[in-house]
């Protein structure tokens, strides 16, 4: 295993937690906290997987996902969406915009880990 994961998230404690979990498993974790420049970060880091929060400062995670899917370079990039708003319509939105997987906070660490492994492995 081992690969590059880009975590786009603004909540410091959550960043801290995910970074710890993935690093321990051998993943290289980059972090980006601003929605507006997230696309640039994806281009610059060229990750194997993106973990994307929905509620970001300045730009919605859904918009970022839509742009990723619209671009040829990133249309197949695995994207794991995280959201703290666990309503049914949020899941539907994520699916419509093309999320590879959708997880509601609070998540279990093993769940995140196995999702990342599956998404990058496939």
């Amino acid at each position: 295993m081992g690969g590059r994961v880009l975590l786009i998230e603004d909540e410091p404690n959550i960043i801290e937690a995910i970074r710890f979990i993935l690093s321990r498993d051998g993943w290289a974790v980059d972090v980006h906290s601003d929605g507006a420049t997230a696309l640039d970060a994806v281009t610059a880091r060229a990750p194997d997987l993106v973990i994307l929060d929905v509620m970001l400062p300045n730009r919605s995670g859904y918009d970022i996902l839509a742009d990723l899917r619209a671009s040829e370079a990133t249309e197949a990039l695995p994207v794991l969406m995280l959201t703290a708003r666990g309503q049914k319509k949020d899941r539907e939105m994520a699916e419509r915009y093309g999320a590879s997987r959708f997880m509601t906070k609070p998540f279990s660490n093993s769940e995140v880990l196995s999702s990342v492994r599956e998404l990058v492995g496939s």
Partner: peptide
Amino acid sequence: LRTPMTSIRAF
């Protein structure tokens, strides 16, 4: 509510 709970659960 979920944001702090996420950190709590994860840690």
